[in-house]
């Protein structure tokens, strides 16, 4: 597969002196859905804004479809559509006017039929003459998408597209994103939910504190991250793990009140049944048993210190 976007040694230091991006290297393949996953403040928006021309990169090179984003900005920006994180709209404009404005801004001749089709796809056609301030939050989000698609971009950035969108609308939105992918559009979305990245993406990149920690195919990454923990609350704190159980690679919590067993949830045989049998034959008793899926924070720790 060919590369549509490549980023080389990109750094961003804001005027405040804060380094939001640290030596980013990333390649996005043509036609894929790429999820950029990271906690708040990781640098996702900064990265997208640098590619789209809203943030000045401090250092490095960004190439879109063979064009440099600074020297050939007209070519790269014509290819890109951006749905920003914030819902910023002209409250007093109508839906129809604002979407046509966007198309013109991106240098395309008017095409009412295409705009009509886009608005219909996003269920906004019956709102075309409404002023934007009369729209609900979900409609505004879809309007931002319509604006971003109005000039028929080949690369679409969705910056936290589901923030504040309810479950049903979220499903519709993913449906539309898949449809776009089928028309050959490359999609790069950001999120801080692992589940969202898992559901949508072909590949996932994890960003933390301005650094891309890993980029991998979704399935490979999910295997890595599929580790779960079985936590056993002990009745009485133990000094050490009893000899017959050493083969299980069990760990204590710092207070030694819990035994922790880490297993791979994607495997059929996770060993839990055998472990419980061994524990009971060792005569150990528990107050409680529960499982724990690695949170995003834990995944970062896991990835940073393998």
């Amino acid at each position: 597969m060919s590369t549509i976007l490549s980023i080389h040694n990109l750094n961003k230091v804001y005027a405040s002196g804060f380094q939001a991006l640290k030596n980013i290297n990333l390649k996005i393949r043509k036609g894929e859905i790429f999820a950029l996953l990271g906690p708040n403040g990781a640098g996702k928006t900064t990265l997208i804004n640098a590619i789209c021309g809203i943030v000045n990169p401090s250092d490095g090179k960004i190439i879109v479809d063979g064009f440099d984003i600074i020297n050939d900005f007209r070519a790269t920006r014509s290819l890109i559509g951006l749905v920003p994180q914030e819902l910023s709209t002209d409250a007093f404009e109508t839906v129809w006017n604002t979407v046509n404005f966007s198309r013109g801004l991106f240098g395309k001749a008017p095409n009412p039929a295409f705009i009509e089709q886009t608005l219909k796809q996003l269920s906004l056609w019956d709102k075309k003459n409404n002023t934007i301030r009369t729209l609900s939050g979900g409609m505004k989000r879809r309007l931002m998408i319509a604006k971003a698609l109005s000039h028929e971009p080949r690369v679409l950035f969705l910056d936290e597209p589901t923030a504040g969108v309810d479950v049903n609308l979220r499903k519709d939105m993913w449906e539309q994103v898949r449809h776009l992918k089928n028309t050959g559009v490359t999609i790069i979305l950001t999120t801080h939910y692992l589940e969202e990245a898992e559901e949508m993406a072909d590949r996932i990149g994890i960003i933390n504190k301005g650094e891309i920690i890993v980029t991998e195919n979704k399935t490979d990454l999910m295997k890595k991250l599929g580790r779960k923990q079985l936590i056993l609350d002990l009745k009485d704190p133990l000094g050490e793990i009893p000899a017959p159980l050493t083969k299980w690679a069990l760990a204590f919590n710092p207070e030694k009140t819990q035994l922790i067993y880490t297993y791979d949830s994607t495997k059929d045989d996770n060993g839990i049944a055998q472990l419980l049998a061994d524990l009971s034959s060792a005569g150990m008793t528990f107050k409680d048993i529960h499982t724990n899926q690695s949170s995003l924070e834990e995944i970062f720790i896991q990835l940073v210190k393998p």
């Binding site: 021309g53 809203i54 900005f73 951006l82 910023s88 002209d90 966007s102 801004l105 240098g107």
Partner: peptide, 16 residues
């Protein structure tokens, strides 16, 4: 006004 409301993002990211 676009700076204030944030809609300036569109002008900044456009091929102009």
């Amino acid at each position: 006004f676009p700076r204030f409301t944030g809609t300036i993002y569109e002008v900044l990211s456009a091929p102009i």
